[in-house]
Nucleic acid binder design. Structure first.
Lengths: 221, 221
DNA sequence: TAGATTGTTAATCGATTAACAATC
DNA sequence: TAGATTGTTAATCGATTAACAATC
């Protein structure tokens, strides 16, 4: 395929969106699409699409465009949707349980094999077809099963310590929902911080901008 | 304060993170901080911090740095943490209920005043101190209460239609957790798409990169 | 005053867009 | 072949970083 690691972050973050749109087109039985048509659907430039795709190789054909199914498959392969990375989830509170049940890990390169929580009352409770284990079992579980990805739905205060332990146990990637900015500290560890609070604050800011605009418009009128 | 609307998106998306770090410093009773110290904590450049802050005005003092409490307050004001935008949540499935209980809306410029779901079995159930109403009551509720922000935790297929209706009812901003790419179509509407699936796919890609690197390292050794 | 650190301008870097020759 | 559309190079744009004069 292509020299991974050399691809810019801006491109990578657009790939899942391409994958999603191509999946839709595929479902609608669209066979081919040009960069221009796709650009209109996705509200970006045709140039950018061609530029992005060519980071990974020439998937199109001059005069024709792109075959939807082929392109969908190729991007899927690039993202790793077929990888089945062993995944554990830590913190089975409201958010953790919702993530476990709501997210389709299997279609996104992940295979959820364990859920853990400090609260003994939750031990044994079944979520997403998995019985919750107590946090104290993590070490043993990791040594036996070697999970690659950990989903962290735990309070900020514990995040760094638990992440540290997991790295020592061989975990290579974190999907971090805690308020703590994981990223740092280790080389060769992948991190996706999902800061829902930050997202809501950004929305508050933008809402503000819009409401102020409306107000000044009214005053002018 | 400052000419909102003219600020670049890259800057705005960094503001909540500044706010978070300054909140921490405040809790630790740190009185002043220089752009260089803050840059080290946040792993970005001092230049960028000064550049970002100066979009909104000179909050610092030459030779001294920034007063933590003052800067925290100013950024809070810019973001609108004190706005209490009336907010409704639509879709009280696993994710919707988790968001309602897990997110502190009040400290992020929002005030959650209603939760709605199509499932009649959920009507009357209390979540985050609010009784769930049936979706059919949305119109009446909006006319009476004029919510500004809507949190969408509904299936992709319904998103566009419901968003359309809400816009007609005066909603000005969407926090969108559905798989559908809201953004578009309307002017003067703020949207934050939270595509958890895309985030996980990005992580799968990066995990892939790391695992491949490790493999080639091993082969070399 | 001397030292420190900002606010701000200028330089660099990277990402996006435009253009066009290659080619199906 | 003629028309369409890619792959790719060059131009533009914006964001980040560096530098430094202003000033507390």
């Amino acid at each position: 395929m292509a020299k991974h690691g050399s691809i810019s972050n801006s491109v990578i973050k657009r790939l899942p969106r391409y994958y999603r749109f191509l999946g839709e087109l595929l479902k609608d039985n669209i066979v081919r699409i040009s960069s221009r048509e796709l650009s209109q659907k996705m509200k970006l430039t045709a140039s950018q699409i061609r530029q992005d795709l060519n980071c990974f190789g020439g998937f199109g054909q001059q005069g024709y465009g792109y075959n939807v199914e082929e392109l969908h498959n190729e991007i899927g392969k690039i993202l790793g949707v077929d990888k089945h990375f062993k995944t554990i989830l830590i913190g089975a509170g409201n958010l953790g349980r919702a993530i476990a049940t709501h997210i389709n890990f299997e279609t996104r390169g992940c295979h959820l094999i364990g859920i853990f929580d400090v609260n003994p009352a939750l031990t044994g409770v079944e979520v997403a077809g998995i019985r919750i284990s107590h946090t104290s079992d993590i070490t043993k579980f990791c040594k036996e099963n070697q999970p690659v990805i950990a989903v962290l739905c735990i309070p900020k205060a514990n995040t760094q310590r638990i992440a540290d332990e997991l790295v020592k146990l061989g975990v290579k990637a974190f999907w971090n929902f805690s308020h703590y900015d994981l990223s740092i500290d280790y080389e060769n560890i992948a991190v996706e911080n999902v800061h829902l609070g930050d997202s809501l604050l950004t929305l508050a800011y933008n809402t503000n901008v819009i409401c102020e605009e409306n107000d000044t418009d009214k005053n002018k009128a």
